[in-house]
Amino acid sequence: MTVLPKDIPGDSLKVTVGTANGKPGDTVTVPVTFADVAKMKNVGTCNFYLGYDASLLEVVSVDAGPIVKNAAVNFSSSASNGTISFLFLDNTITDELITADGVFANIKFKLKSVTAKTTTPVTFKDGGAFGDGTMSKIASVTKTNGSVTIDP
């Protein structure tokens, strides 16, 4: 049996954390987006972790974005102690894959008090994996961190 590389060099799934701005007490939304989904033969499963400074940001909610089908079954998240974990699994293993680019999740943060303008990162942590529509590992994932700026 011969195994051929399935990824064209330079191609990767792009996962990007967005940015937001606000004043202390505001609730802002930071999107997590996927790009080049079709090039990577869709997404059938993924789990990953984001870190944030809990002294500056309070997670209000984490909701599935419009590219997630049947989110009540296929999407899960949790947030505590400065870490947000995400889990997606197409429970049907074929019919509810992520097949389009767009917003995977929206994180709502309540901004805490600061004395001066502060930009705090929302960054990928170690761990996690992504699988394509056949549940094979997506070897190349380009992750881009985001941030939230609090301006009193």
Rank of each mutant, 00 (worst) to 15 (best):
residue 125 K to M: 00
residue 75 F to L: 12
residue 71 A to N: 12
residue 96 E to W: 02
residue 137 K to M: 00
residue 137 K to L: 00
residue 139 A to W: 15
residue 139 A to D: 05
residue 37 V to A: 13
residue 138 I to A: 04
residue 64 A to L: 00
residue 79 A to G: 09
residue 97 L to E: 01
residue 80 S to T: 12
residue 5 P to A: 09
residue 144 T to F: 04
residue 39 K to F: 14
residue 15 V to D: 14
residue 126 D to I: 15
residue 108 K to L: 04
residue 46 C to W: 05
residue 4 L to K: 10
residue 102 G to K: 01
residue 98 I to E: 00
residue 144 T to S: 07
residue 94 T to V: 15
residue 26 D to M: 09
residue 46 C to S: 03
residue 90 D to A: 03
residue 121 P to Q: 07
residue 48 F to C: 08
residue 131 G to L: 01
residue 126 D to V: 15
residue 124 F to E: 02
residue 43 V to W: 02
residue 16 T to F: 13
residue 30 V to M: 14
residue 4 L to C: 12
residue 54 A to C: 08
residue 138 I to F: 04
residue 42 N to Y: 13
residue 131 G to T: 01
residue 23 K to E: 10
residue 98 I to S: 03
residue 123 T to D: 06
residue 37 V to P: 12
residue 33 T to G: 13
residue 103 V to E: 00
residue 50 L to W: 12
residue 56 L to G: 12
residue 143 K to V: 02
residue 27 T to N: 11
residue 55 S to K: 12
residue 52 Y to V: 09
residue 135 M to W: 01
residue 58 E to W: 08
residue 89 L to C: 03
residue 7 D to V: 13
residue 141 V to C: 00
residue 14 K to S: 13
residue 27 T to Y: 11
residue 145 N to A: 05
residue 105 A to W: 02
residue 118 T to M: 07
residue 56 L to N: 08
residue 64 A to S: 11
residue 130 F to L: 05
residue 130 F to P: 02
residue 13 L to N: 08
residue 109 F to M: 05
residue 6 K to P: 11
residue 35 A to I: 11
residue 92 T to C: 01
residue 124 F to C: 03
residue 132 D to H: 02
residue 103 V to C: 06
residue 135 M to S: 01
residue 73 V to S: 05
residue 111 L to I: 06
residue 112 K to E: 04
residue 8 I to P: 08
residue 132 D to W: 03
residue 122 V to R: 00
residue 15 V to R: 06
residue 12 S to N: 14
residue 58 E to Q: 10
residue 72 A to Q: 14
residue 94 T to P: 04
residue 112 K to S: 03
residue 99 T to G: 07
residue 87 L to Y: 01
residue 6 K to N: 12
residue 72 A to P: 13
residue 81 N to I: 15
residue 57 L to Y: 10
residue 107 I to D: 02
residue 92 T to M: 04
residue 119 T to L: 08
residue 103 V to R: 05
residue 107 I to H: 00
residue 110 K to I: 04
residue 43 V to M: 06
residue 123 T to H: 10
residue 23 K to F: 09
residue 134 T to V: 05
residue 32 V to L: 09
residue 19 T to P: 11
residue 141 V to Y: 01
residue 80 S to G: 08
residue 93 I to D: 00
residue 148 V to W: 02
